[in-house]
């Protein structure tokens, strides 16, 4: 799906992130020569960059500045726990988001997906398509051959996550974490409420069967014709 460049020198952390990203079919590129980080990033032209701050040769701030001269793709800073002044510094150097060590890979993934979605939308790609249905993530409108429905912002965020994992079961934990990172603060109860609202809206255009519940695990969106 997307190409992620990891500017990090700790092999254990690279491995963990790599494994998690591979599950979601993202490809991973890492640094070969610490003297030419910016050139390697430019050559790889990734969709998103993860940046550690403490690095060999120059620190992350220097490289973020250099990298910003060649690309505007989203940057997430991975910082050692609790050094807020560093984070502020990173954000002013041109980073889009940050995560503190030790971090949960679920949270990191949620942040990556949120930024990828946002940069996709910024390029005019605010229409998500599945089967013959089109979902506009700016107007929250779902257009299908059977008719259109208008969703609430939370229902839209939910549907957006499910569409980007079409045919895969998305766990409740992952859904909640993604919603939180997008600024929607829900728990199991309010998630259930929003899922049933989304399902009853889908029912008005005869599509409620596309939204499957995997009992005790999570939810899965499937194509219209599947039974």
């Amino acid at each position: 799906m997307a190409k992620i460049f990891i500017v990090e020198d700790n092999p254990a952390i690279i491995q963990t992130i790599h494994d998690e990203l591979a599950k979601w079919k993202h490809s991973v590129v890492t640094v070969n020569d610490w003297d030419y980080v910016d050139q390697e990033v430019a050559a790889a032209s990734p969709d998103l960059i993860l940046f550690d701050i403490t690095l060999p040769t120059f620190d992350g701030f220097y490289w973020i500045n250099q990298v910003r001269k060649v690309t505007q793709v989203p940057i997430i800073v991975i910082s050692a726990a609790d050094i807020d002044s560093n984070i502020m510094h990173a954000i002013t150097s041109g980073a889009d988001d940050y995560i503190m060590k030790p971090f949960s890979t679920a949270v990191l993934l949620a942040k990556i997906q949120a930024l990828l979605r946002r940069s996709h939308e910024a390029e005019g790609g605010n229409i998500l398509t599945w089967d013959s249905n089109h979902f506009n993530s700016l107007t929250n409108e779902l257009t299908t051959p059977q008719g259109s429905i208008q969703l609430s912002p939370t229902e839209s965020a939910l549907l957006g996550i499910l569409i980007s994992h079409l045919d895969h079961t998305v766990t409740k934990e992952y859904l909640l974490e993604s919603l939180w990172q997008g600024g929607k603060f829900l728990n199991d109860n309010t998630l259930n409420v929003n899922i049933s609202r989304l399902r009853s809206k889908l029912a008005t255009i005869n599509m409620d069967r596309c939204l499957r519940t995997e009992r005790g695990i999570g939810y899965r969106l499937v194509n219209n014709h599947e039974d």
Binding site: M100, A106, E173, F185, L186, N187
Partner: peptide, 19 residues
């Protein structure tokens, strides 16, 4: 506050709390 809440997301979700 939104930043702080996102940072504490796992704790909130584990305890099923809502801000």
């Amino acid at each position: 506050i939104s930043e702080i809440l996102k940072q504490n997301s796992t704790l909130f979700i584990n305890h099923q709390l809502i801000p």
